[in-house]
Amino acid sequence: MNSAREEILGKVREALGRRPGTAVPSVPPSARVGPRKAGDPEAEIAQLLAEIGKLSGATRRLGSQDDLRVALADLVKAEAVTKATLWTTPDLAAWDVAGTLRTLGVELVSPQADKHLVAACELGVTGVDAALPETGTLLLRSAADRPRVVSLLPRVHLAIFPPRALQVDLHQAFADAKDAGYSVLVTGPSRTADIELTLTLGVHGPKALYAWVMNEP
């Protein structure tokens, strides 16, 4: 195994005319444009939700706890949700998403449960670690209270997040995300055009993406 490593690195060095440990000049500039200036917070939120809407995501701007309760009730009804799984982050706890779902008659499944059980959930609820208005992109990091399967296996993915999640661009979002062991950028629900170039939603990932901006808990 090691000999393969040495041989490949040796060939690369020989081809490039480099010696081991030779200094590397600094990385060329990345054409960083801007930095992009964030506009007025509500305008940024409107742009984010509009971009997600263009990608067939369903969006809402919620204010109070009552708004959230009504929105969840609508979603549970519209998507015929009987089982759900969710992140255990402080925001979702403060908004009492779990409690509200339970009062709506939804059975809650632990994300750490057997994957077949998680896959049987109709709904997975997450927060986001960053939201990018320009592209309608949500960034989700993985952590103990943010399991990866919640935004992947259930048929519907709901992301609820406060305005402070909004960031100006990829540069800012990456500054925080690069030290996470795993993260994913979600830009609209799962899609394909592999059959005769017909756009079809919901191939392997969630068929529906709901993105709700909710006031600070």
């Binding site: 592209t135 103990a144 795993y182 993260s183 979600v186 629900p189």
Partner: peptide, 22 residues
Amino acid sequence: GQKLSCYTQFISGPPQTREETG
């Protein structure tokens, strides 16, 4: 012709905790 593809994934090693799933 998309601004970003639907899912861009960043993987640095296996999950650090069992709770993360993966």
